[in-house]
Nucleic acid binder design. Structure first.
Ligand SMILES: [Mn+2]
Ligand SMILES: [Mn+2]
Ligand SMILES: [Mn+2]
Ligand SMILES: [Mn+2]
Lengths: 224, 224
DNA sequence: GTTAATTTTTAGTCTTCCCTAAAACAACTG
DNA sequence: CAGTTGTTTTAGGGAAGACTAAAAATTAAC
């Protein structure tokens, strides 16, 4: 088996690779809250273990073996988040921190039982897709709310899950995955707020000014 | 916070202290599957942290601070075992290994939610008492079945939880905590089997010869 | 009451994962 | 294309937790 440090590194490579072309040492250091020198050291070990390919100054990429482990950990993480939320009522801003620990200790047997108990969910409480048991994962790249024009109707697809305060804020506005909304006004190239009307859920009809930072971490899919 | 190594040591001191007068280095080494030299090193660190008192060649004892941590970990362990068994249907011979890992990562919030979801259970699937939220724990020392005389009627109180094979064997005989039985024949000072009639549960009426090792790890309370 | 066997401790290492400070390198900038 | 800036690597260490081998203390055996 692998240490949880190894699992966290591989997961981070996978997650950064979702948006960035190349995964750099400093991007990993920032995400894992670790010094760049530590990343260099660990990445060299991962390369020896054939879990990543790595060329100095050119970044890191997962091998097939490394990707399998990364997706396994992501499956654990998102399944645990979903289980904590659905079965135990843990609020959506707290599940991430707990899952960050559980993902490393969950057995395959209990993973399967959670999946079964939940009826094989496809998305976690923040809208992110849960990898299949055979470790397939497609992560669509929804545009952030911040980039939508006034007049657009859209549905919340996914919210970044690692900032509890942001999640409480967004939740307070009634903007959960699946919630429909209409963009009232938007200031695309500034850092101003995006005003939306909520069309769904407990805040149905309400109009909210969504701060820029939140709008950048809230992803939507268009509705024709 | 403490490392899981620290938590495991404190738990082991507490558990050995349940039956033994003094907790020796070698007893800890055997239970934790670690060399005696490693135990000496760790125990010195625990003494510096004021979690145990320790005198060379005379063994280890928990301080109040150390006992609190130990019982907290035991509460986590037994609550997780119960939750896995009741809520997810994990068989009673598998819950221990999983709980051994989960006990170190469970937050107080999720602990409370599991407790609530289960209706504040008092005993884990093996019959061991679950410490209260305020960390009170009384562990009665039931006599083992191996020491019961022929003719005695008794109820299964607790079964050792760390040997899956033994649990499968005992479970196959229908002997779960709460099951009533009658001792048909017993060979107290030999290592022969104890023959019992099951008075309860799915094996009601059956007669079984319980092997000596199992009878030594199966604890009962008398019934008048 | 010595000697022998057992238990415990000391001494010296190893591995894993992280750190800081300084040197090396790559990429802009004018 | 020389200088500035930012990134990455090297060099040197540290904390945890474990190990082996050998010394010391305790206990058991003649
Ligand atoms: Mn993690
Ligand atoms: Mn999530
Ligand atoms: Mn443990
Ligand atoms: Mn148990």
């Amino acid at each position: 088996m692998h240490t949880s440090a190894v699992e966290d590194y591989l997961k981070a490579v996978c997650e950064i690779g979702r948006t960035e072309e190349t995964v750099t040492t400093s991007a990993l250091a920032a995400r894992l809250d670790v010094s760049p020198a530590s990343v260099t050291g660990m990445v060299k070990k991962l390369a020896v273990m054939k879990l990543v390919t790595y060329e100095r100054y050119y970044g890191v990429a997962l091998t097939n073996a490394g990707r399998r482990i990364a997706i396994e950990v992501i499956r654990h993480h998102r399944l645990v988040e979903t289980y904590l939320h659905e079965a135990l009522g843990v609020p959506w801003d707290e599940v991430h921190a707990e899952a960050e620990k559980w993902e490393h200790v969950l057995s395959e047997d209990v993973e399967a039982r959670m999946d079964e108990a939940l009826g094989h969910p496809t998305n976690d409480p923040h809208g992110a897709p849960i990898p299949t048991p055979t470790l397939e994962l497609v992560e669509p790249d929804w545009p952030p709310l911040a980039r939508m024009d006034a007049g657009t109707k859209a549905v919340v697809a996914e919210v970044s899950d690692d900032d509890p305060e942001l999640l409480r804020y967004v939740g307070g506005l009634g903007l959960y995955p699946g919630t429909a909304l209409e963009v009232i006004s938007s200031a695309p190239y500034s850092d101003g707020p995006v005003t939306v009307r909520v069309l769904d859920g407990d805040q149905r009809g309400a109009e909210h000014a969504v701060g820029h930072r939140a709008a950048a971490h809230l992803f939507v899919r268009d509705v024709k």
